[in-house]
């Protein structure tokens, strides 16, 4: 089928400001949007720059705005996104654009690192040399937030983040949730302290954009709500 791709382009070595590149290509309906972008890059204009790796929605490299909504280009199909023969592609919002779809991810990862994204447990390991035990119910408690692939779809869809880049953002809160609600972890209070900061969890205005944007179907807004509740009540359950 025919597809008209409209791509927001910016090359810092040539362009003073972004411009729209328009490309007419032939694709299969079941092709991924990533395949369509490759068709442009490989056969029309090799200067098009984007990150991508796994091409099936698990590595988190190719987050972008597709028809105005944050998606992984490898996890949506042309036939589902095409409208009037066209798909519009832009870089994710709220980050400095380096080149075309490539944005500066460093502030995003700095927020991630700030919430102590690692298990803290200083009690002695089991004397039998085996695993710490955890009931299936306790394991299930934080399952949803373990799915996060740090693609930034959620954070860069959030109006609070657009308004203030210092806001720690949904992804970092999801990552904090993954440890706060892990029965093996002992640093929940320290993480909650970090998240109660002026640029922490209270900047969330429950817009639900993050939940819509998550390619892993994490209930991001609910997750943030659980962290707020833990902060409000002082109870983690």
């Amino acid at each position: 089928m025919k597809l008209h791709l409209k791509i927001k382009r910016f090359n810092p070595e040539k362009d003073k400001k972004p411009w729209w590149g328009e490309y007419d290509i032939e694709v299969e309906p079941g092709d991924r949007v990533l395949d369509a972008l490759h068709e442009v890059k490989w056969n029309i204009d090799g200067t098009l720059a984007l990150r991508r790796s796994c091409a099936h929605g698990v590595c988190g490299s190719d987050a972008m705005r597709i028809n105005g909504r944050n998606r992984l280009a490898c996890k949506c199909l042309v036939k589902d996104e095409i409208k009037n023969g066209q798909i519009t592609i832009e870089p994710i919002l709220g980050m400095r654009v380096i080149k075309d779809m490539i944005v500066d991810m460093e502030p995003f990862f700095a927020h991630y690192r700030s919430i102590m994204p690692f298990l803290v447990n200083d009690t002695p390991l089991p004397a039998n040399g085996r695993e710490r035990l955890q009931s299936p119910v306790d394991r299930e408690r934080f399952d949803d937030s373990t799915k996060c692939i740090l693609c930034a779809c959620c954070t860069t869809s959030c109006p609070s983040f657009w308004a203030r880049g210092e806001y720690i953002g949904p992804a970092a809160i999801v990552q904090a949730h993954r440890f706060i609600f892990d029965s093996r972890d002992q640093a929940a209070q320290e993480r909650l302290e970090i998240l109660s900061d002026v640029d922490g969890v209270w900047r969330c205005r429950t817009a639900f954009n993050c939940t819509d944007a998550c390619p892993r179907d994490i209930k991001v807004t609910k997750t943030i709500g659980e962290v707020k509740e833990a902060l409000r009540t002082g109870v983690i359950q």
């Binding site: 690692f118 695993e131 035990l133 955890q134 009931s135 299936p136 394991r139 399952d143 440890f179 892990d182």
Partner: peptide
């Protein structure tokens, strides 16, 4: 910290 799935006994 790896969140393995668990048996009913927690292993």
């Amino acid at each position: 910290g790896l969140p393995f799935d668990r048996t009913p006994e927690g292993k």
